[in-house]
Amino acid sequence: MDATAMQDAETVITKARLGDPVALEALYRAYSGPVYNLARRICRTTEDAEDVLQETFFEVCRSIRNYRGDGSIWGWIRSVASSKALMRLRRNRYRETDELDAEYVPSAKEASPGLRMDLEAAMDRLTVTARAVVWLHDVEGYTHDEIAEQMGRTVSFSKSQLARAHSRLRVWLGDEATV
């Protein structure tokens, strides 16, 4: 970002903190894409991701007065988004525990060597928790400590979920090393 753009961004944030609706809408325009992408990668359905998007910006509009400006605005919005997405997962898993949290067993066709799954399909096959951890850690750049805190779990839980996810992706994507 160049100096002018940075200054513009600061002006928008200052105005948004005062509740200026135009500035709040500008924030939505700037960050709704990344928020939705994060939500969609964590949630199972587009409807859930859209709800998370709405929940996130509702919270942003209400709480931006409390944003102290330490750390980037995107870092703050993203933490709101990931916490809303994880909250949505917890709520949905409550209903769908058996279906979604059960260990995925590939069908004979999927498990047969030489038949690779595409990455999107493989991600969809992960349990919701494992997928959320992969996305937050490997793509969004959260640390295991941060994930553990957001999920209300331990650091070793986050680490083992990540390892479990990669072990499965490795097989489903046909990434096994042959030496």
Binding site: Y28, S32, A49, M123, D138
Partner: peptide, 14 residues
Amino acid sequence: LRALPRMTPARNQF
């Protein structure tokens, strides 16, 4: 994983 296409919302939620 990092190169997966970015998904965009179908509707404006604002």
